[in-house]
């Protein structure tokens, strides 16, 4: 699970300013994302799936 320092460092490294009051909200969102990632464990063969990435028509002509 993320902690506040991880968030601060991660944003700092990307040059992304933030307000200190944003941190609890970012933590909350990251917590939802991390917990929801647990659902992947029910699908052990997920690496068989090709990620959906956009290869649009302009690249195929």
């Amino acid at each position: 699970m993320d902690d506040a320092n991880f968030i601060r460092q991660g944003l700092h490294l990307q040059g992304l300013p933030f307000c200190e009051t944003d941190i609890p909200y970012i933590l909350q969102i990251r917590c939802t994302m991390t917990l929801s990632q647990n659902a992947l464990s029910a699908f052990p063969y997920l690496n068989m799936e090709t990620p959906i990435t956009i290869v649009d028509k302009e690249l195929l002509t």
């Binding site: 991660g10 990251r30 994302m33 990632q37 990435t53």
Partner: peptide, 19 residues
Amino acid sequence: LAGALTDTPQYLQAQQARR
């Protein structure tokens, strides 16, 4: 900003989960 902390493996896993 929460999205900015998403790493590439996570994003690709999300697109695998999507498929």
